[in-house]
Design a protein around this nucleic acid. Structure first.
Lengths: 150, 150
DNA sequence: ATAAATAAAGACTATTTTATCTTTTTTCAA
DNA sequence: TTGAAAAAAGATAAAATAGTCTTTATTTAT
C-alpha cells in the first residue's frame, strides 16, 4: 500500500505531534526507537519532511531536535505523503495506466473511483493533529505499544 | 498503490480474458505489446499466474499460448493479486504496524477500516470476467488505447 | 523423425528502495 | 571561545524489485 518511507514518515510525524513541542524537541534516537524504525533512515526521512514541506521543524545543537509548529499540526496527512513522494495512492490509476481518466477509463475505473475519493478524503480532511489525538486516546497504538501521554 | 508486477498481472489477465479462449490462445508477444509491458518480465509474471493459482492456463508449442478457462474467468480479481503476492493492500495496516487490529488499532485504523472493506469488496466481488466485460464496453481502455473486440 | 513454434526455466543485469556509516554544520552552555 | 550535542549532508552498502537474455522442454505439423 504505502512505501516504508511513507510509513515511517507518518509514524514519526504522529509521534512527534504527540510527544513533542517547541520546548520539548525530540531526538532522532527517541523517535526511531518509539516508532520502531531504522534510525539513520528515519533521519533521512525527517530531513525530507523538514525541507520539502515544512511539515516537521528542527533545530540542531544541544537541546535541539524535532517538533511540530501549531500550523504544521493543522496540515492534512496528505502533506506528509507528498513530502516523501507517495501520494500516488490518491492520484494514480490502479492498473498503472497513464491516460486513465473519466473520459478514457480503465476497466477498474468505475469501481475504484469511489474508493479513491474516500482515500483522498481521508488524507486531505484528516490533519496531523487529528491522528495525534487518536493516538492519545489510550487504547491506540504506534509500534505495537501504547504511547504514554503524560 | 500496486507494484508493477501486480499492474502487469492484472492488465495481462484482463487482456487474455477479453481476447483469448481455449481455441485462440495468445502469445506473449501479442500480450506484452497490447498491454504495453516488458515482454520477458511479463512472461515471468504469467508463469506465476499459471502455477501459483491456475488463474491463467498455457500450452507450449505451435499454436500454444495463454488463455483462461471458464472457471478462471469466475475467479475474483484478488486471485490475481495473490498470485503475485500483492494482496497486502487489503490485508495490512496503513502504517505498517504488525499488531494493528480492532483491539489494538493504529491511529488511522478507524478511518481506514471502511475503505479497506471497500477495497476488499472490490477485489473479492469483482471477477476477472467482470473486468473483461468492462473492457469490452468500447469506451474502456487498456494501454492507452481501446481493445477491439471483434 | 524432424523442424519449428512456443512457454518454462534459469542465469544474469539494472534500477529503485531501504538502510548504514562518516563527516560537516549549527547551536548551546560552560 | 571551546567542547559537546544535536541535525544535515554525503558517501556507501544491502536488499528488493524490475527487467533482459539464453537455454531447455513441450507441442504441433510436416
Amino acid at each position: 500500500m504505502l512505501s516504508k518511507s511513507a510509513e515511517y514518515a507518518l509514524r514519526a510525524t504522529i509521534y512527534i505531534a504527540l510527544k513533542g513541542s517547541e520546548d520539548n524537541k525530540l531526538g532522532i534516537d527517541e523517535i526511531a526507537t518509539a516508532i520502531d524504525s531504522p534510525q539513520s533512515f528515519t533521519a533521512k526521512i525527517l530531513q525530507l519532511l523538514t525541507k520539502n514541506n515544512g511539515v516537521v521543524s528542527s533545530v540542531r545543537g544541544p537541546n535541539g531536535g524535532f517538533y511540530l509548529t501549531d500550523a504544521a499540526r493543522k496540515l492534512p496527512v496528505r502533506a506528509v505523503l507528498e513530502a516523501v513522494g507517495e501520494d500516488g495512492i490518491i492520484t494514480k490509476c490502479v492498473l498503472g495506466l497513464k491516460e486513465c481518466s473519466e473520459s478514457r477509463p480503465c476497466p477498474m475505473h468505475e469501481q475504484y473511483r469511489y474508493i479513491k475519493a474516500q482515500l483522498r478524503q481521508m488524507f486531505e480532511k484528516t490533519t496531523i493533529q487529528d491522528l495525534a489525538n487518536e493516538s492519545g486516546k489510550g487504547k491506540i497504538v504506534i509500534n505495537n505499544r501504547q504511547i504514554k501521554t503524560k
